[in-house]
Amino acid sequence: MRLRVRFSKTGKIRFIGHRDVARVTERAVRKVGLPVAYSEGFSPRMRMSFGLALPTGYESDGEFVELPLVDSALVDGAQGGAGASDDVAAGGPAIVCRGGAHAPCEHEPELDAPSYCTIAEALSEALPVGMEVSAAVLTDGRGPSLQAAVRTCGWRFEIVGLDEAAAAKAVAALLAAGTVVTERVHKGETVSSDIRPSVEVLQVVGRSDLGAVLSAELSATPRVVRPSELVPALASAHDMGKARRTHQWTCGAAGRAEPAVPSRCAQRQKETLSG
């Protein structure tokens, strides 16, 4: 079984790279004493798999990491396995951490996987400021990896100094175009490619102090197209401001879904604390 964790990356912490996120996460897991499995061999490492890497400097509300748990750390009712989602949702196993056992949250019976908001809270506490865990749910660990499962990403980004009307015009023009060829530097070489097929949704959603705010849904295959590649095609004289990943979407039997939705329970607790 795996614990699938959804977390954010906002504020100053957005400037640390993907490898550093992994190292910070590993330390947080150890601080919480979460029973995560290690690799075998000469130099055992904590096993963890992330969703699509977030470009350094981007914020995110939807980052994911899956942590395989050691079997012996799951107690009570864990034997139902993957198919028995109804049973699991009703109760689900407790996860034994170093500091004690965590039972699934009772407040979210509508979820189809047991959710552990106390673990989410403990991880948030252990992570640096700006990284908040919004959900921790138990999955059977079958199916494709997160990296393979994610089909599109939702983004929200600013274009500095561009007003909303001009942005709307640029968006309409881009969406009307048959091809949008852009250049980017890849491994030291300038590569040009048509990004139009990757743009599934693009719209102006408002403005910030800096300029227009757009939202987009861009496909993650065959390669991840970033908002920073869109901006020159929309307004070549303008820079991109802050960009934030809002979602990573997978496509399952039940249609488009996220690997885990933010736990409302955890959020309620957070609001209670901060309020």
Partner: peptide, 18 residues
Amino acid sequence: TAGGASGYGTADAGADPS
């Protein structure tokens, strides 16, 4: 060591990789 299958509270000198 509170039931720690993981964590450095484990006194067992076995194959605990953590």
